[in-house]
Simulated assay, not measured.
Amino acid sequence: MKLSLRKLVVGVVAAVSVLAGEGARAARISNPVAVFAGIDKITGRITTFDVYLDETVQYGALQVTPKVCYSRDETEAQKVDAFVEVDEITLDRKIRRIFSGWMFADSPGLNAVEHPIYDVWLTGCKDKSDIPPPKTN
């Protein structure tokens, strides 16, 4: 009886080690498109928009530029995150950086951009967009 219990414990420990090793090997997937949602607090309108990496999209008075957008493969729990820069175009037409950092799709309130008129948050990453990619020179 002791020997079979010991084998069971050793087997469980080995199985956990193998599973933990597989999880450690799973890499983040770099995606070329970040998906954002934004709300105009004056109209209450929510807009979803795609942005290619290193491209800038204007949403109201904000300019949103994702630098990286990571997801996980289908075998992992999805943890989508992106490094994003957000600039504001002020009334005197100056550009002011109001956010530079990581956004997390599963915790939109953690690092969402909160502006007096516009809020922007990451909702996902994807491989393709219906919007054509930017032209490269």
Rank of each mutant, 00 (worst) to 15 (best):
K7E: 12
L8C: 13
L8Q: 11
V9H: 09
V10K: 13
V10S: 15
V13T: 10
A14V: 15
A15H: 07
A15R: 07
A20T: 15
A20L: 13
G23P: 06
G23W: 14
A24K: 10
R25C: 01
R25T: 03
A26M: 10
R28E: 14
I29V: 15
S30F: 05
N31V: 03
P32H: 09
V33D: 11
V35L: 12
F36W: 04
F36L: 04
A37P: 07
G38W: 04
I39P: 08
D40F: 06
K41H: 09
K41D: 01
T43R: 06
I46V: 15
I46N: 14
T47M: 02
F49Y: 10
F49L: 14
D50R: 08
D50C: 09
Y52V: 06
Y52H: 07
Y52W: 08
L53G: 14
D54Y: 15
E55K: 11
E55Y: 05
T56P: 09
T56C: 06
T56I: 07
T56V: 11
V57P: 01
V57T: 12
Q58P: 05
G60D: 01
L62V: 11
T65Q: 01
C69F: 01
Y70L: 05
S71R: 05
S71N: 07
R72F: 15
D73W: 08
D73Q: 10
E74M: 06
T75Y: 12
T75K: 13
T75A: 14
A77R: 14
Q78V: 00
K79V: 11
K79P: 00
K79M: 06
V80R: 06
D81N: 15
D81W: 09
A82Y: 08
A82I: 07
E85N: 14
V86K: 11
V86I: 15
V86P: 14
E88P: 00
T90G: 02
T90M: 00
L91R: 02
D92G: 00
D92W: 01
D92T: 07
D92N: 09
I95M: 06
I95D: 03
I95S: 10
I95G: 01
I95K: 12
R96T: 11
R97Y: 02
R97F: 02
R97D: 06
I98M: 04
I98T: 08
F99T: 13
S100L: 13
M103H: 03
F104K: 03
F104S: 02
A105I: 02
A105N: 01
D106S: 04
D106Q: 10
D106I: 00
S107V: 03
S107I: 03
P108G: 04
P108I: 02
P108V: 04
G109K: 00
G109L: 00
V113Y: 13
E114A: 07
E114Q: 06
H115P: 02
P116F: 05
I117Y: 03
Y118R: 07
D119H: 14
V120Y: 09
W121G: 00
W121F: 09
C125S: 05
K126C: 03
D127I: 10
D127W: 04
S129Q: 05
S129Y: 04
I131Y: 11
I131R: 14
P132K: 05
P133V: 05
P134I: 04
P134A: 12
P134G: 14
P134C: 08
T136N: 08
T136C: 07
N137I: 12
